[in-house]
């Protein structure tokens, strides 16, 4: 119990819980649209942005690295849009290309930085690939707080617009909603959450926080509002449990632990959710006997 009030635990727990709550809600939109892997591509693509920001600033400063990540996230998304809109290449191919090429650029830049004596203290950079929640600072948590609050506020303000647009884009524009504006809004929220969350869970795994909660929500309800509430709560609870495991037991990094907890929840929901496998079977048996 002492652990629950320790300073490091609190910092990390507040940060990851908030982050997962917000990402769970915002990520649900991409899951419904069938574009969940865009988050994966953007997550990986932020890597060169982080290295470049480091090269410019010279230290692993949280804010500048986050800015670098956002810039490259936006560039990556722009590339993906451009390729899918103006060639026969599908979203699947474009994502794989951009994800791996940008990550490759990051790798090349990193090898340059590490081989160059002008740059020191490069070891912190790897934290952004795999996540290192234990090293989270107060400033990291503030950044997460600001990003989460802003994106949740925008989500609430544009709730109906986002909902109608996601369901029926053409109808939404006939009743005066600007579809490209809403699309841009959702994407910027996603990119910003990825950027501030990299330190906590890393570029590779962050996509899970955007997908898994929404999937859990969709397995339990068929109402949008309930789905996003479940998604947010599932994200937050998993983050808290995961962080607790990570602090209580040695050798459990927070990011991966959170993702394991989330995956367990996904599995349980697949069995027992409203449309789950067990539920389905149960309904069938009941249906036959009556």
């Amino acid at each position: 119990m002492e652990l629950l009030t320790s300073y490091t635990f609190l910092i990390v727990a507040i940060g990851t819980t908030l982050l997962s709550f917000a990402s769970g809600i915002i990520g649900t939109i991409s899951v419904i649209k069938g574009q969940s892997l865009i988050g994966d591509a953007i997550g990986h693509a932020t890597f060169p942005g982080i290295i470049l920001a480091f090269m410019l600033v010279g230290v692993t400063d949280t804010l500048s690295l986050a800015v670098g990540a956002v810039i490259f996230g936006v560039i990556a998304f722009f590339f993906i849009q451009m390729i899918t809109n103006h060639s026969k290449i599908t979203l699947d191919g474009a994502l794989a290309l951009i994800l791996s090429s940008f990550f490759g650029l990051g790798m090349a830049l990193k090898s340059f930085v590490q081989g160059n004596p002008a740059f020191q203290n490069t070891q912190g950079i790897d934290d952004y690939i795999f996540g290192q929640a234990a090293y989270m600072l107060r400033l990291d948590v503030y950044l997460i707080l600001i990003a989460s609050v802003i994106s949740l506020l925008l989500f609430i303000i544009f709730y109906h617009q986002i909902r109608i647009y996601t369901f029926d884009p053409i109808y939404s524009s006939t009743i005066g909603i600007n579809p490209s504006l809403i699309n841009f809004l959702v994407l910027s929220m996603t990119i910003i959450l990825i950027a501030v969350g990299l330190k906590a869970v890393g570029a590779i795994l962050i996509v899970n926080l955007l997908i898994a909660p929404g999937v859990i929500g969709l397995l339990w309800s068929n109402r949008f509002k309930t789905v996003i509430i479940i998604a947010g709560v599932a994200g937050a609870v998993s983050a808290f449990i995961g962080t607790y495991i990570s602090t209580a037991f040695a050798g459990f990094p927070a990011g991966p632990s959170i993702i394991i907890v989330l995956s367990v929840f996904v599995f349980i929901s697949m069995l027992f959710g409203r449309k789950g496998l067990v539920t389905r079977k149960f309904k069938k048996v009941r249906g036959e006997s009556s």
């Binding site: 419904i32 069938g34 996601t166 369901f167 029926d168 053409i170 929500g217 969709l218 309800s221 068929n222």
Partner: peptide, 13 residues
């Protein structure tokens, strides 16, 4: 609108 222009997977009643 014509059919098939909406996201049928959308969780809504």
């Amino acid at each position: 609108p014509q059919k098939g222009e909406v996201n049928w997977e959308f969780p809504t009643t």
